[in-house]
Amino acid sequence: MMPAGSRATRGAVYVEFMIAVVPLFMVFWGLMQLNGFLVADLVTRHAAVNAVRAAIVCDSDEKTKGESGAVECATEAAKMTTKAVQSIETTTVTVRGASESGNAPVIAQVSATYHCQVPLMARVVCGGSDSRVIVREATLPNQGHYYKF
């Protein structure tokens, strides 16, 4: 019989540690990937709100009048918001309801492509691919008032 502090006991501790540390690292990296995705989702929601606000305010400017000007301003506002997250690769914006007549709800939809960065957890968080599209929408009433700059 070997004493408690012998070489064989220490070797067993190392083996048990190696067995336990692999699942712990998997859980840790999975939480990090999920955290990155949730931050990207939150930023995309905020970009949609910024885009709809920009579409309403920009529509009243002389240079950016009408639907095309609203889309241009909304796209710029959304891209400025999503550039804070480096794992968001592309951002596209669509605007509905921006018109010169007013009193209609303006809807901005932001689609952001999120790139999963942790290889082992990309299958779980991003559904088996390297990237995932996040789509968020925001609506605000136009209220028929045009701002003077």
Rank of each mutant, 00 (worst) to 15 (best):
F37S: 00
G5T: 11
R123Q: 10
S60H: 05
A12I: 14
S111N: 14
V118C: 02
A78E: 04
S111G: 04
I56Q: 04
D59K: 01
R53Y: 06
C116M: 06
V118R: 03
S87D: 08
R123G: 14
D41F: 06
V125K: 08
R7K: 11
Q109A: 12
T139E: 14
A8P: 09
V15M: 12
A54L: 02
Y146H: 15
C126E: 03
A78T: 02
V21H: 03
F37N: 00
A4R: 15
G144C: 10
F17W: 10
T90E: 05
M2C: 06
T64W: 07
A104C: 01
A98Q: 07
G66E: 14
A55D: 07
A104Y: 06
N50T: 00
G127S: 08
D130S: 15
K65F: 09
Y14S: 15
L120W: 13
G66V: 03
M1P: 10
A74S: 12
P141C: 05
T91K: 07
E72T: 14
A54D: 02
G144Y: 10
R7P: 01
N142M: 05
R10N: 11
I107Q: 10
M32E: 06
P105S: 07
P23Y: 11
V135Q: 14
V118P: 01
V124S: 04
R123D: 12
V125S: 01
A4Q: 14
Q86W: 01
L24H: 01
D41S: 11
K79Q: 15
A48W: 05
D61T: 14
A47G: 05
Y147W: 11
E16F: 15
G36L: 08
I88Q: 02
K63H: 10
F17C: 12
V52R: 07
V57P: 00
A40L: 06
G69P: 04
T92F: 01
P3Y: 13
A40I: 05
A4Y: 12
M1E: 12
L42G: 12
N103K: 12
E89S: 13
